[in-house]
Simulated assay, not measured.
Amino acid sequence: MKIPSDTSHTLTSPRLAWPVRRKGAALAVATAALLLAACKERPPEAPSAAPAATPATTPPVAAQPAPPPAAAPAAVAAAAPKRVPLSIQGVAAAGVTVRVKAVEIGADATVLDVSISFANRITDTTMLALADTYLQDESGARLHIKRPDNNRDITIREGETLDGQLVFMGAVSPSARKLKLVFNEGNQGDNIVAPGLVVDLPLQGA
């Protein structure tokens, strides 16, 4: 039977069908391989950067005043009182014995460490500051005694000993060589009411 001429190209030989399908599969495999290679060559995406931290605002610091300068050693030494140890004794005929154990020369006062005793068979008491009582320096300046509130005349009973300090108002020069201690200025040493007594106090080489 004769095949019509218009249908000569509609039928496909079985030998030609398989190569066509295989060619299409190969094209699909090649396309997939290209896509896979493209995926492998793509660099990994960098992680998104964390948002920058907002710097904390530091509150302004108030200026602190500078500490006062330390006192210079020379000024401290000048303010410290000068203490001179002594062992001087004076005796009045009325029975008074005065021992001076130290002199402390300060900026506002001069202080004597003393021990005062009284022994007399005629009277029970006597007074060491009834009249003017003072310290006198080399220039003749007088530092008068600061009378205690509870014993302004420095009364001492017979047979007693007073240990303590006599304070004289004012300071003498640290370079002074000697002082004079005067009790009851102008009175005699045998005055049993208020005996007079003068005691020299060497300050240099004592």
Rank of each mutant, 00 (worst) to 15 (best):
L162R: 09
N187P: 01
A171P: 01
V167Y: 12
R157T: 07
T126W: 03
D124V: 05
K178V: 05
T161F: 07
G170D: 11
L179H: 03
H144C: 03
I154E: 08
R142E: 09
G140A: 06
N150F: 14
G140E: 14
A131V: 10
M127I: 00
S173N: 13
V172E: 02
L130H: 12
V167L: 11
D124C: 02
L128I: 04
N150P: 10
L179T: 06
K178G: 06
E185S: 08
Y134M: 07
F168Q: 03
P174I: 00
D153P: 00
E160F: 15
T133W: 08
T126Y: 04
N151W: 15
R177Q: 11
F118T: 03
T155D: 08
M169Q: 15
T126G: 04
N150C: 06
V172W: 05
E185I: 13
R157G: 07
S175T: 08
V182D: 06
H144N: 10
D163A: 10
L143V: 03
K146Y: 12
N184Y: 04
D153Y: 11
N184W: 01
G170P: 13
R121D: 09
V182N: 02
R142P: 00
I145C: 02
T125H: 06
K146E: 15
I156Y: 10
L130F: 15
G164W: 12
G186P: 01
M169Y: 13
G159L: 06
E185T: 09
R147C: 05
G159D: 05
N120K: 02
S173H: 11
P148E: 15
D153T: 10
F168W: 12
T125M: 06
R157I: 03
L143F: 13
R142D: 00
N151A: 13
A141N: 11
D124Q: 07
S173V: 00
Y134D: 07
R152F: 14
A119E: 08
F168A: 00
I154R: 07
I154L: 15
I122C: 08
R177S: 04
V172H: 02
N150I: 08
V172L: 01
D137R: 01
N187G: 07
K146G: 08
L162W: 14
D124T: 09
D149L: 14
R121C: 04
K180E: 08
E160Q: 14
D137Q: 02
Q165G: 05
Q136Y: 07
R157S: 11
F168Y: 12
I156Q: 05
K180T: 13
E160W: 14
F118R: 05
S139G: 07
A171E: 01
G140S: 11
Y134N: 07
L130T: 06
T125Y: 12
A141Q: 13
A131F: 11
G186D: 08
K178W: 10
I154F: 14
K146S: 14
F168G: 00
I145S: 02
E160G: 02
T155K: 14
M127L: 08
L179K: 01
N187R: 09
